[in-house]
Design a protein around this nucleic acid. Structure first.
Lengths: 206, 206
DNA sequence: CTCCTTCGATAGTGGTGCTATCTATATTGG
DNA sequence: CCAATATAGATAGCACCACTATCGAAGGAG
C-alpha cells in the first residue's frame, strides 16, 4: 500500500500522515527504494487509532505515549493500566495536597500504594478546582459518584478479554482513554433524562 | 477593589484579567472616572469560576456561554441544564447517525425528545470514534456504564439545592461542567484499585 | 508637583496541529 | 525511452488559542 492509498482509506491527508511519521506516531513503511516505501494494515490501523485518540482530546505527545504502551506493554496487567493512565495524566505538581483525595477515595477501597500518585493527584486537582470556584458536591452525590465509578471499574476490569494478550492490552490501553468522552456524553444524556423525570417535561421537545 | 487587588486575590495577572474583560467573561467594574473602575466580590467570584472552567478544559468561548447561562438562566430547570450542556458540546455535524445512540440510551430511559439532539449527538460521535479505532465495548460493560450513569444523574438531579433559585442555577450549570474531570479522575483511581484487586497487586508500590 | 496606577488599544508570544512547497529520486503509462 | 506522476525528506508557513507586553493618555495619592 502506498501513502496515497493510506490517505484514501483513512481520509487523512498525505501531509498529515507525513507529519505523524515525523512525530513517530506511525512507524516507517518498508522501504523499496530511496524515495519509496510501502505500508500495510498495521499502518492503517495505527492511523485510525491516532485519529480516535485525537478525537478523544489526547494531544500528539499523549498519543505517542499511549501508542508506546500499546507497542511495548509492561508485563503485568496492572502496570499496563498505569502506563495508559500516565500517558494522559499531566504530571503531578508539588503544591497539591493529596490527603483529601486519599480520604475521599477510601470509599473506593483505596489503600496506600494501590494506585499511582499521578492518578490520585488528578482527583486532588479536580477537587481543588471545584473548591476554587466555590462549588461543593453534596455528600450524597459524591457517594453516588464513588459507587457508580467503582461499579464501572469493576465491570471494565472483569471485561478484559482473555483470548489473547494482545487483545487484553488493546482493551486496557484504549478502553481507559477512548471511553472517556463516551462516559461524559452518556452522563449528559442521563442528566437530561433524569431532569425531565423530575421536572415532568413530558411533552416532546424539538 | 482595584484591578490590582483583584489580581492579587485571584493570582491571575492583570493583563489576563483585562483580557477576560475584553472577551466579556468578566463584567466591567463601576467606573469612577475615565481611567478608573472599582470591582467587587462578584468580579472576584467570576474570575474564580472562569479559572475553574478553564482548568476543566473549557475554552474561552465555552466559558462565555456557561457564564451567560449563569447570568441569564432559562426559566425551567430542564432548559437550564440544556443551556449548560450546549455551552460545552460542539455543534452536531450532519453526517452523524444518531439512530445507534438512540438505541443505546434507551437503556437510560430515553424517549424521543427527552434530551437535546446535540447531547445525543455527543454519544453518537463517541461511538463513532470508538468504532473507527476498532475498539468495541463489551455488552456487559456498556450495561454497567448505563446503570452507573443513570445512578449518577439521578443523584445529581435529586441533589439540586432548594434553598434558593440562584443556588440551584449555580449547582446545575457548574456541576454539569466542572465535575467532569473529577469523574474521569475517580474512574482512573477506581480502575487501578479494581485492577489491583483482580491481579492481586497486594504489595505497596511507590 | 511628582510618582504611581489604571484604562484602552494594539501588537507580540509560545504552543499545537497541521498544511504547503521544494528538490531529488523513483515509478508508470504510452 | 520519455514524459507525467508519485514519493521521501526537509523546511517553512499557517491558523487558532490563551495569554502577555507595551504604550500613551488620564487620573488619583502624598
Amino acid at each position: 500500500m502506498r501513502i496515497s492509498e493510506l490517505s484514501e482509506h483513512t481520509g487523512v491527508p498525505i501531509a498529515t500522515i507525513k507529519y505523524y511519521l515525523r512525530e513517530g506516531l506511525v512507524p516507517e513503511g518498508a522501504r523499496t527504494s530511496a524515495t519509496q516505501a510501502t505500508y500495510d494494515r498495521t499502518h492503517l490501523e495505527r492511523i485510525r487509532v491516532i485519529r480516535a485518540l485525537i478525537a478523544a482530546g489526547v494531544s500528539i505527545a499523549g498519543a505517542r505515549k499511549v501508542i508506546a504502551a500499546l507497542d511495548d506493554p509492561p508485563d503485568s496487567g496492572h502496570d499496563l493500566l498505569g502506563a495508559a493512565h500516565a500517558a494522559v495524566t499531566p504530571p503531578l505538581d508539588d503544591g497539591l495536597d493529596v490527603a483529601e483525595a486519599e480520604r475521599l477515595v477510601a470509599g473506593l477501597g483505596w489503600r496506600p500504594g494501590l494506585c499511582d500518585r499521578e492518578v490520585l493527584g488528578g482527583v486532588a486537582r479536580s477537587l481543588d478546582a471545584l473548591r476554587g470556584s466555590g462549588f461543593t458536591v453534596p455528600d450524597e452525590v459524591m457517594a453516588a459518584y464513588l459507587d457508580a465509578l467503582r461499579a464501572i471499574a469493576r465491570a471494565e476490569i472483569a471485561g478484559i478479554p482473555t483470548e489473547s494478550p494482545e487483545a487484553a492490552v488493546r482493551y486496557v490501553v484504549l478502553g481507559s482513554v477512548l471511553v472517556e468522552p463516551l462516559l461524559l456524553a452518556l452522563r449528559r444524556v442521563a442528566e437530561q433524562i433524569a431532569s425531565a423525570e423530575r421536572f415532568g417535561a413530558s411533552e416532546a421537545k424539538e
